[in-house]
Design a protein around this nucleic acid. Sequence first.
DNA 1: AGAGATAAACATT
DNA 2: AATGTTTATCTCT
Length: 479
Amino acid sequence: MSSTAADFALNSLQYGDASQLFNDPSLQWPSPCDLAATQLDGSHYEMPHQAYACELDVGMSHPMHSQGFRYELAPAAGYCLQPASVNAQGSCPRSFSDFSFGGHIGSMTDAYPPSAYQLRPQNADQEELYSLLVGEQATHMSNAYENPSGSQMRPDRESAMPRRHWRPLTEEPDSSSGMLLDTPVPDDGTKSEDDIEETPMDKEEPYAQLLNRCLREAPGHTMILRDIYHWFAKYTDKSHNKGTKGWQNSIRHNLSMNAAFQKVDSATGPETKKGTSWRLTEDAIRNGVKSTTRYRSKIPNKRGGRSQHPAPQRQASGAKGGQAARKAAKFRRAVRLREANGAQVTDPYTMPPTSAPPPTIPEAQPPSDTEISYGSNFGYPYFVPGTSSLSPSDPQIQLRARYTPSSATEWSFPATPEHCNLVDLVNSKRPFNGSPFCYNSFESGDEPMTPASFADYSVDHGPGTPFEAVESIETDVLQ
DNA sequence: AGAGATAAACATT
DNA sequence: AATGTTTATCTCT
């Protein structure tokens, strides 16, 4: 694979303050050859910013300078590439021209000139972290990977370091010009967890969406359940203030019921004992995750005879769901109020980025007009206007589109550096369905169905008759 | 009616 | 016991 174009891109990068990160041998950044898988053609190029994003996660090991750090190529809310030409007061950090493409990190790919990039922390916490790291030379960074058993990887919630709350990039203080989300964001350390709990539905996305992001950040978009639990415990509030395991139940419920997630057949790879993995489907990668409830059967239970416990004996479930719904309602009411007052409001997971596309670019449509699709690659075409010679017929695009990570099933979270395959990251960040440049092999009818919807449902499930099962399937498909 | 959360029953690994 | 699948039930929009 030729690396000349990639070399060009790499050599043109302005690493800026990140130079030590890139030079650190323990940080095995992708080689230029790997980069060749990205789209390059001399005059312009396309590079997913996530490819070089690096998260320094001190939560996994504390104190940070003794145990070593963990880093991820796919960051949750860590570092991202930003145009070097834009300073902190810059009006448009994620574009290099006068316009902004906007978008969520992890959701879309931007095209900027190579020289426009600089790696820098996204917020004060990380700024501090970063200086500490650079000062320490970060010589032990790879240690955390030596033991993938999971025990050492449990985030230390009692760490002295402030817990980082997830915030979509579009809300970062320096990420836009006055288009900040003015919804309260509990990230300044002045709020306690209890306060956060009081805040109405602070960005706490639905399970399906959280799972989407969780898997999206994972190498090969694949994780085992236990690591998904860890991720939720670390990055979400779902597990807070609950002694129960209900949130894990909910995770499993969503994984199982939402067709965006599929089980990966294990037994392919050396570490099979770790259990089966869950992976984002190709469709979900392109179009985002849809509501889990949409896969819910509309047909009343016909299987019958399932339980010896009649309904009245059953404890009323879902009551707490009502609480959550009430919170959400409060939040939405607040949003509406804000909108009524003229403020620009972004719902981080149900709305496209606030940045409007430049008028010269044909408008892209969200994946679906009638269905909720969160976390999808909402956005806009992201090639530099006027310079793009790329098209869906471009062989390199098709090459990328055809690429499927063969070793994905071997990965788990967090990945070791060796497992961080940039090609896969690139693959995962290709244009979404709505882009005019998108490689789109999926028609809407190809949407994956929940396992119960497959024709072999009746073969090995349940006491009901096959006919009954099939009947409900067809209804599901058609509805 | 649909979304989302949650509980729970039941099945499988 | 942990995981996976499915249904039920609740609140809210």
